[in-house]
Simulated scan of single mutants.
Amino acid sequence: MNNQEQNMKFMQIAMKHLPEGKKILDDKGIELNMDDLQPMLELLLNVMSEAYELGKEESMENKS
Rank of each mutant, 00 (worst) to 15 (best):
E31A: 08
M40I: 14
K16W: 04
I30D: 01
M1L: 06
N33V: 04
M1N: 03
N2V: 01
N2R: 04
K16A: 08
L18F: 12
E61Q: 07
L18C: 03
K9Q: 13
L44F: 15
M34R: 01
A51E: 11
E5A: 10
M11E: 08
A14P: 02
Y52E: 06
Q38C: 04
K9L: 15
S64F: 13
L45K: 02
E57R: 14
N2K: 07
D35L: 05
E57Q: 09
N7D: 15
M8C: 04
Y52G: 00
L25W: 09
Y52R: 12
G21H: 08
M60H: 05
N33S: 13
N3T: 11
Y52P: 00
E53W: 05
E57D: 07
K23G: 03
M40A: 12
E31S: 06
N2M: 06
E31Q: 13
G21P: 03
D36F: 12
M60A: 04
E58T: 00
P39F: 15
K63N: 09
M34E: 11
E20K: 06
Q6N: 05
N3V: 15
S59W: 14
M60R: 07
A14C: 01
Q4M: 12
D26N: 09
E57K: 09
I24H: 07
D26G: 03
Q4P: 03
I13Q: 00
N7V: 05
E57S: 05
L25G: 01
A51R: 09
A51Q: 12
I13A: 00
Y52F: 11
L25S: 07
G21Y: 07
M48S: 08
M1H: 08
Q6A: 05
M48W: 05
K16N: 10
M40F: 13
L25C: 08
F10R: 01
N7G: 11
P19E: 09
Y52K: 10
F10L: 06
D36E: 10
K23A: 10
P19I: 11
E5H: 03
M48H: 06
M48V: 10
K22G: 02
L44G: 01
N3H: 13
P39C: 10
Q4H: 14
S59R: 14
M1A: 07
S64G: 04
D26H: 06
F10N: 02
Q38R: 11
M34H: 02
M60C: 00
M11S: 04
K22H: 04
Q12S: 03
L25D: 01
E42K: 06
V47C: 08
N7K: 11
H17L: 12
I24V: 14
D35C: 03
E53F: 04
S49F: 15
L54I: 13
E50W: 11
N62T: 10
H17V: 11
M11V: 00
I24F: 08
K16M: 12
N2T: 11
K63C: 05
E61T: 03
E42Q: 14
D36I: 01
E31V: 07
N2D: 15
Q38I: 08
I13N: 00
K23D: 06
D36S: 07
K56T: 01
M48I: 10
G55E: 07
H17N: 06
E57N: 07
P19Y: 12
M15P: 00
D35P: 03
M60K: 12
S64Q: 08
K28P: 00
S59M: 13
K28N: 03
Q12P: 02
S59E: 03
K63R: 09
M48N: 12
L54G: 02
N2F: 07
Q4A: 09
M48Q: 15
E61A: 05
H17C: 08
